[in-house]
Simulated scan of single mutants.
Amino acid sequence: MNPHPTAPSTTPRTPRSRDLARQREAITALGHELRMLLDATVRTAASPKTLEDMAAGVRSLTGQLTGHRRSVSEIPEVDEFPGGLRMYSPATGPGSPIAPPMRVTPTQDGVTGHLRLGIAHEGPPGYGHGGISAMLLDELMGWACAATGTPGMTISLHMRYQGPVPLETPLIARAHVAGTDNRKIFVKGSIAIEASASTTLVEADGVFVAPDAEAARSLFPTLKNAR
């Protein structure tokens, strides 16, 4: 698992790894610009003509993304799956236009995520959508499973919303494994404002399951081709 992809590597890079690093850097740069565009799009009060011109321009740019297009079951070469970096994750992916993205780091007893929600994540005016909180904790709790060496998949997620999550405010999310039962993994997670981290705004209890080898092959038929 590599929960902090921006940390410097101590391993000498081969030409292949340099190519991969450059690809990730380019994906991250494009993801950042797309998030800026998304933010401007949901804030704008531009005229219909301006919006129509923008739509045509974006359509033209989309046409420039030529080459191989991965299938829905194909694992991107830039990912570390299972249990690591996912470049296009809607929660943590630096290449995703809809991700905050949440930066994940390991802690002594689990993992911590740092993020800010933007206006594109809005539910009630000024606050994050409750479904975004659920998505973020579901992702982070999965990282907590992987941090123990047992990547798992969500089979249940129980949310408790104790206060609204403000937009454009530094947030801290936490997750840790609370126990296991055979292949079941019990995980707890929370979100708070970073400046008042002891006041929990959202809590979650999740149950994850580590698929056996046969189930993993069935669920992820291209896994054998992953890095």
Rank of each mutant, 00 (worst) to 15 (best):
D138T: 08
R59Q: 13
K49L: 14
E25Y: 02
S60E: 13
R217P: 05
G31Q: 03
V202C: 06
A40Y: 02
L34M: 12
T50Y: 01
G83C: 07
E25V: 00
D205A: 03
D138F: 07
M102R: 11
M36I: 00
I155C: 13
S17G: 02
L38T: 10
P125A: 11
A215N: 09
S190W: 07
G206M: 02
D39F: 01
L115W: 08
L51Y: 01
L219F: 11
A213Q: 12
T154R: 09
V165L: 14
A147C: 07
A40K: 12
F81E: 08
T14D: 02
A226S: 14
F220I: 09
T10R: 11
T92A: 15
P170F: 12
T28H: 00
W143A: 14
A210D: 03
E122C: 02
G130V: 06
S60K: 12
Q64N: 12
G163T: 10
A173C: 15
D205Q: 03
A178H: 08
I132Q: 08
G152S: 10
V104T: 14
M54R: 12
S96M: 08
P211K: 05
A210F: 05
L223P: 04
T41Q: 07
V207A: 04
P164L: 06
A55Q: 11
V104D: 11
T154H: 13
A134W: 03
A213D: 14
I193L: 01
